[in-house]
Design a protein around this nucleic acid. Structure first.
Lengths: 169, 169
DNA sequence: GTTAATTATTTGTACATACAACTATTTGGT
DNA sequence: ACCAAATAGTTGTATGTACAAATAATTAAC
């Protein structure tokens, strides 16, 4: 198993079982193939930033998506499930599933009226919303410290715009 | 439910149930909050590009991760599971799960020796590898047509480098 | 005004991925 | 040479997300 030991500029230094040291540019062989693929790179980044977000939002005992949902609902009480789906760029079925769980934790209330479902925060949700915001800020600090704020800003914006452009369905 | 109808520059035009038309900048209200968050944006992009990749790799009856795994194994027969994990930026357990499924489809062979597992392509896998490459190229064409090749290149590289930098575990 | 089409949400089911715990093997310390 | 530590991989289990089908409500068509 190759385990990463240290990272210097564009170099990754691995130590192998038998003490052979490998020094690779991050553009090494196979990765060089894949790093030019948006599917590969975007998913890799998403997995890694999700792990970091999970660590930060663990302080409020919520997975990141749930935390974002709570924030969104607190910002606009009474919004519809479909609007949540649009804002969070998640499918309606995923939104339903997240809401179910939040409701079971008394963090939101669903109010069905006709065929629409309006969503309201609960007192408990209002309370922890502050902590969620704090965790969110810590998350932001954490990755901008590593990537540089300027760079992170620009890239995040590029990623967002690309997501919107590619979301043609 | 808001459904996207058309996209012009930074404008998104929605048609609502009651035929009211909403025109929003893509930096509207809530999204404006979230589009600056790397967790949110990276995950949104990953989900969308994954859906597109699934469409393209459907031609070879494989989900994208499996297709990438087949390509990697064909490029370096005999590589270890741990190396696959490193190259693909997936955890060892995920690699095991993917390999199990590929093996059941006769697309790879695992050879355990001591505590390491070496992985080899099968004739069937060599065969479809060409089709996988073709699908991969179609995927690339598809998103670069929308985003612009120059822009997509730069962003993909930025994303890859960020993933490597943030992957400190 | 009744029937067909559209729309909003939910449910059944499937899947990719990960963590934690476990097994088996190899390495290192004394 | 033996025992502790580290390592490679697998398995049990959980979770986030999505698709397709189902349900229920609203709108449109004639």
């Amino acid at each position: 198993m190759l385990t990463q030991r240290i990272f210097i500029k564009n170099l990754k230094i691995f130590a192998h079982t038998n003490n052979v040291i490998y020094i690779c540019t991050i553009m090494s062989d196979e990765k060089n193939l894949y790093c030019k693929c948006l599917y590969y790179s975007a998913n890799a980044l998403a997995r890694i930033i999700t792990r970091i977000a999970e660590e930060e939002f663990a302080a409020v005992n919520l997975a990141p998506s749930y935390a974002f949902m709570v924030m969104t609902i607190n910002k606009r009480p009474g919004l519809l499930a479909g609007e949540l789906s649009d804002i969070m760029m998640l499918t309606p079925s995923t939104v339903t599933r997240l809401l179910e769980k939040l409701e079971s934790q008394q963090l939101v209330k669903r109010h069905m009226e006709g065929r629409v479902t309006m969503i309201y925060p609960t007192p408990k949700s209002v309370e922890i919303n502050q902590e969620i915001q704090a965790a969110w800020l810590k998350l932001y600090k954490r990755y901008t410290d590593i990537l540089g704020e300027e760079f992170a800003h620009q890239m995040t914006e590029d990623i967002f715009i690309s997501a919107v452009k590619l979301d043609t369905k």
